[in-house]
Amino acid sequence: MVHDYCEIFPDLARLRDRATQGDLRGALGAMDRAGLAGVVEVDRRLWVLAGEAGVDEPLERLLAAEPGHRRGRTLRALRLLVRGWDIRGTATAEHVTTAQFDAFHDHLRRAEQVLLRLCAEDPADPEPWALRLVTARGLSLGIPETRRRYTRLVELDRHHVEAHQHLVQSLCPKWGGSWDALFEFARDCADAAPDGSAQVGVLTTAHLERWAGEDDPELRDGYLSDPDVVADLEEVSDRLLAGEATPYSWVGAHSDVAVALVLAGRPQRAVRHLGVLGPAMEDRAWALAGPRRDEVEELRAQAATHGAYR
């Protein structure tokens, strides 16, 4: 199984190497040119760079020379966000220490202040708005503020896949939302997406969150195999396979629905998506597969023998 986007996508590996090996400025410039040319998912490239501690030193040099460098500042904010979240960890709030929370919030506040200025300076750039959905969640600014930011963002980019995923997280009860609000949003968002787009997958994510958030083991076991839920998953499955895929986020969308279908007892459906994924599998979905990972591995092998990888 390959979880690293740079292993899955050679262009992301080249971008990472260029950024960490002396030409951050060029890497950021290429990224923005791709964005201007209508190639979506600039944010995925940003997240890849922000996952590399090796960008810090070239980033400081770049910003010392050009304090106004827009993408450099965006990356600095995202680095703060990533480092802050590393400090917090992924545990539920009651397992996070006060010191961790303080450092987490401090990083997020610093990121937010860079981002809010970027939003003010260029209201047409969706990327800082998308990242502000994450700071809003981490700083607990509340659903109304998160939705305000989301509305601003979708005015700029209706199909910003990561933004929809961020809002799904914010609308979960663990971040102050409710299941009703989550599903209302997820259905509207999936309905509005073109076939093939990873945006269709927000409905899968919502079901997986609902399932993972269920404390009662009996209810949890039965949730994904409920006929209504299965019908939703099958619709997502059909639509994901029906149209042109999103450049990078298809990995997350297919991983989610493949794992959800396995958990829902629809292995043969899952095989189709595992065929598309090949060796790729997003780590979040893989974590959710838990004790059923062996089954996913077997199905993946089956997919490999029956059809070509994507």
């Binding site: 003010a120 209201p123 600014l141 659903i143 109304p144 503020e145 939705r147 305000r148």
Partner: peptide, 15 residues
């Protein structure tokens, strides 16, 4: 909707 009003103010002033 309090939080959204506060956020809106911050963004308007920033602009």
């Amino acid at each position: 909707e309090r939080a959204g009003v506060t956020g809106g103010f911050v963004d308007v002033l920033a602009r």
